[in-house]
Amino acid sequence: MARKNSKSAIETISPPTSPYLWERRSDTSVQFWTKGSQEHSIIKPTVPPHLGLVRHDLAADISAPPPFSYSIFEKLGILHAAINEMKSGFRTYRYRQNFHFVIFVFGGEISLVSGRRKISAKKGDLLTIPAGSDYEIRTSKGWKTCWFHLKESKCWNGIVGNEIKIKKSMEPEKLLEAMKLCALEVHSPTRSEWAISLCADIVCSYVRAELLSGNESPGKIELLENCFQSSPASIPSAQEAAKRLGVSVAELNKLCLKKFGATHSKRALKIKMAAAKSMLSRGDSIEKAAEASGYANRRSFGRAFLRECGITPRIFVKTKA
């Protein structure tokens, strides 16, 4: 298998003996779809459009929604996502894939080989394949899955990790129902961006929670640190940060207290005010410092500054004059 995972060997991979619907090759991957397989994308399709197999109809074997604002999913780091049912004989080879691949298995069996490692994923399993992996996936029994291509980013890197993993999914049926609702909405002729955005947030929350389940606190704290490394104005609220980590706000604050000695809100305030004081000391206006710190107006910024620094921004500026 190591030979087949090398880039130079991609071109030498032969089609399977079983009847297949289509074949796709690139410098880094080969894929063979067996006849009778089905896939319903909730974003843009991965099936090559020139084959003419994709329909904007969930009743079709292969469907994808009519084009819409894909940025709704892309801003969450979701590049592709689908519900599928593959028949026996499906095979795919990837070399140095440039996205994280997350697969929830609802039926059948997936066989994965990466180097000398062999993994069998069955109903109820969650298979995580990080970006940069070389591997082969095939099935001799067929499978039913929900899968996601996730962008390499701070948002997902700390959750996915850097090695192929398999574990039991917590609540796979809830994720499947959320995906089905999302598929119905994006395919609907009366769809709305608001409803699609809501569906995307729900699906993303389930995926995050599943990936984070069973992780030790240090891994979650590492992800939390990424939140605080954003610009002061981009630091998420406690509610949003808790959502990203798949924990409650109370659990989030316990993690923050353990690592930073302060709750999320207090640490965020400290970082924002440190940045504001630096700007004011350089001669920037109070309005500019407020905006850069993530405050909608000068008044709310002034209250936060007084709470953290003990003086108002105006007095602080005068002391630095």
Rank of each mutant, 00 (worst) to 15 (best):
A183I: 06
A183Q: 08
A183Y: 15
A183H: 14
A183C: 11
L184S: 10
L184K: 15
L184V: 12
E185P: 00
E185A: 00
V186L: 05
V186K: 02
H187L: 10
H187N: 09
S188H: 07
S188M: 06
S188D: 07
P189Q: 14
P189C: 01
P189W: 05
T190P: 11
T190W: 06
T190N: 13
T190C: 14
S192Q: 04
E193C: 02
E193I: 00
W194C: 04
W194Y: 10
W194A: 01
W194E: 00
W194P: 02
A195S: 12
A195T: 12
I196Q: 00
I196Y: 05
I196A: 00
I196G: 01
S197N: 04
S197P: 11
L198A: 11
L198K: 02
C199Y: 05
C199S: 09
A200C: 13
D201L: 07
D201S: 14
D201C: 15
D201I: 06
D201W: 14
D201M: 12
D201H: 14
I202G: 00
V203H: 08
V203F: 09
V203C: 09
C204P: 06
C204W: 01
C204T: 07
S205E: 01
S205L: 02
S205V: 00
S205T: 11
S205Q: 09
Y206T: 11
Y206L: 14
Y206P: 15
Y206S: 08
V207H: 05
V207I: 10
R208H: 03
R208C: 05
R208V: 03
R208Q: 13
A209M: 10
E210T: 08
E210I: 12
L211T: 10
L211N: 06
L211Q: 05
L212N: 05
L212S: 07
S213D: 15
G214S: 05
G214D: 14
N215C: 12
E216I: 12
E216W: 12
S217F: 15
S217Q: 11
S217P: 10
S217W: 12
P218T: 06
P218S: 03
P218C: 10
G219V: 12
K220A: 00
K220P: 03
I221H: 03
I221L: 06
I221R: 07
I221N: 09
I221F: 02
I221V: 13
E222V: 14
E222L: 13
L223Q: 15
L224M: 09
L224K: 08
E225R: 13
E225K: 09
E225W: 08
E225V: 08
E225M: 09
N226C: 09
N226W: 15
N226T: 13
C227N: 15
C227Q: 08
C227K: 08
F228H: 03
F228E: 12
F228N: 09
F228C: 01
Q229H: 11
Q229E: 14
S230A: 12
S231P: 15
A233L: 07
A233F: 09
S234H: 12
S234A: 15
S234N: 13
S234T: 11
I235D: 02
I235F: 05
I235P: 05
P236L: 03
P236W: 04
P236S: 01
P236D: 03
S237H: 05
A238D: 14
A238F: 13
A238I: 15
Q239E: 06
Q239M: 04
Q239R: 08
E240R: 11
E240Q: 11
E240I: 07
E240D: 11
A241R: 01
A241C: 10
A242W: 01
A242E: 04
K243T: 05
R244N: 00
R244Q: 01
R244P: 04
